[in-house]
Design a protein around this nucleic acid. Structure first.
Lengths: 233, 233
DNA sequence: GAGACAGACCTGTCTGAACCTGTCTAGCAT
DNA sequence: ATGCTAGACAGGTTCAGACAGGTCTGTCTC
C-alpha cells in the first residue's frame, strides 16, 4: 500500500476521527469505538491507534477512561469542554466569531468559591458573524503558573483548553452552577452589543486536577435564546 | 441503551440516587430499594449496583445493614423530588407550601420530545408560606395508566414521586434541559402571585423506565433568585 | 401466649470470564 | 532515528452466577 502523503497513519486516524466529530457523526458524549475495533477498522496496530487518540485527547476533543473507553468531549462551538452539562446551540448553522477582550495576569477579581491570588484572566466574547450580536461572554480565571507566560501573547490555536492540554493540565473533577442573571449590566451589554437589562443564562464552573488543586474558574453569560443546558442521566 | 456520558455505570447509579436523596424523593431514614431491585431498575449487574452504593456509603449518604438493606442517612433540605440536576435553594429555612392546581386526565398539551396521547396532568405551585410568593410552577405529564385512577382524587402523601414509587414505577434514565424563560406570562404570573414579564429559570425533564418507556415529562418554572442548578463531576 | 422452625428476602463475599485502557518490550522497515 | 507492528502483562469495569449468613415473618407446636 502506498503512503500517498507525508501524513503518518496516526495523523490520518486522528484526522478522520476529528472530521467525524466535527461533522456531527460523533456527538458530544458519544463513545468512540474501542481501540481494538479501531485496529480492525484502520488496519493498523494498537500503538498507532493509541497515538492517534492521543492527538485528539491533546486537542481536548476526546476523553479516555480506563476500563471504559474514549468519549467525545467536543461541543461544536467549543464553548466548554470536558464533563458536565452540555450546552446545546439550537441554530447549528450560525457562524460564530470570537473576540478576546483581554489576556492578562492580575489578582482574582470575581467572587468564586475557592481560588484567590494571582490569576491568568481570559475574557472572551463569541458573536454571530452575520450580525455582530454577542452570544456569550466568558470570564476565565486560572491560578497563575509560570508556564502561562507565553499565553499572554495569545492562546494556542485560539483555544484555552488546547493551551491547557498541551501543558499536561486536565480536569479530574469539578462543579458547575447554572442560574439566571435577571438583567445584563450596562458594561457587559455594551461589550456584547446587546441591550442592558436583558435576562441572561449564567453559568459558573470550577474545575480541579487529580490533586484537588483549582485549574480554572469560568463565569459565562449566555444568550438565553440561543443556549440551553442539556443532560442525560 | 447508549452510554451517553463519560462516566462509568456505577458512577451514574451513585449520581442518580444521590440526586434523589438530595432532592428529598428519598428522605432521611428511608430505605433504598434492594440491590436486586436496583439491578432491575438500572439494568446492570449486582456488582455494579454495589459499587455505586459503595460510593454513596463512602460519602456518608447511606448506611447499609446486612440482611436488611440500605438506608438514607442524609438530612437535607427537601425541595424537589427530581433526579438529575440538583436544585439548590439558598435559604434553607424558608417554609414552602404547595398548592395543587389540578389533577386531571386529558390529552397531551405541552410540546415535548416524546410523549403523546392521553396523560395524567398534575399542575403544582410551591410558594413561600410567609409571603405567598410562588417560587415554582410545575406541570407534570404522565402517560396514562389505569392505576392512576385513584390519584385523580389526590396524590399519595401529596407527593407524585411517592405515588409512583408505590406503583413500582421508578426512573432508570432520562434527560433534562434547562434554560431561561425571558418573560413570565400573565396567566402564570397571576397563578404564582408574581409580576408578569419577570425572567424565570425553566426546567424540562423527561424520565424513562428501564424499558425506555416514558414515565414523566415535567416543565418547571423556578424563581431565579431562589433556585440554581448545581452539579459535581 | 411462648417458643421453635421454615422460608423469603436481604447483604457480604467470592469466582471466572469478557472487554476495556495503560504500559512495556522486541523487532521490522524506511 | 522514526514510524510502525506484534505481543505480553497489569489493572479497571462489568457481568453472571454461586454460596454463606443475617433478618424478618408467618406458621406450627406445645
Amino acid at each position: 500500500m502506498r503512503q500517498a502523503s507525508i501524513e503518518s497513519k496516526s495523523d490520518r486516524i486522528a484526522r478522520v476521527l476529528e472530521a467525524e466529530i466535527r461533522m456531527g457523526a460523533l456527538r458530544d458524549g458519544d463513545p468512540l469505538s474501542s481501540e481494538a475495533a479501531l485496529v480492525e477498522r484502520f488496519n493498523v496496530s494498537r500503538s498507532t491507534v493509541r497515538k492517534g487518540l492521543g492527538l485528539l485527547a491533546a486537542k481536548g476533543l476526546i476523553l479516555t477512561r480506563v476500563g471504559i473507553g474514549s468519549f467525545v468531549t467536543y461541543r461544536g462551538t467549543q464553548i466548554d469542554s470536558q464533563a458536565g452539562w452540555s450546552l446545546s446551540l439550537p441554530d447549528g448553522d450560525a457562524r460564530l466569531g470570537m473576540r478576546i477582550l483581554r489576556i492578562v495576569r492580575a489578582p482574582m477579581d470575581l467572587c468564586a468559591p475557592g481560588p484567590e491570588g494571582e490569576m491568568l484572566h481570559v475574557d472572551r466574547i463569541r458573536f454571530l458573524e452575520a450580525t455582530g450580536l454577542g452570544l456569550t461572554f466568558e470570564r476565565a480565571r486560572l491560578p497563575w503558573r509560570g508556564s502561562f507566560e507565553p499565553l499572554l501573547d495569545g492562546l494556542e490555536g485560539g483555544s484555552l483548553s488546547q493551551s491547557l492540554a498541551s501543558r499536561g493540565i486536565s480536569a479530574a473533577s469539578g462543579e458547575e452552577w447554572a442560574g439566571v442573571l435577571p438583567a445584563l449590566s450596562t458594561e457587559d451589554a455594551q461589550a456584547m452589543g446587546r441591550t442592558p437589562g436583558e435576562p441572561m443564562l449564567r453559568l459558573r464552573r470550577l474545575t480541579r486536577d487529580a490533586g484537588g488543586a483549582v485549574i480554572e474558574y469560568v463565569e459565562s453569560l449566555l444568550d438565553p435564546g440561543q443556549f440551553g443546558l442539556h443532560m442525560e442521566f
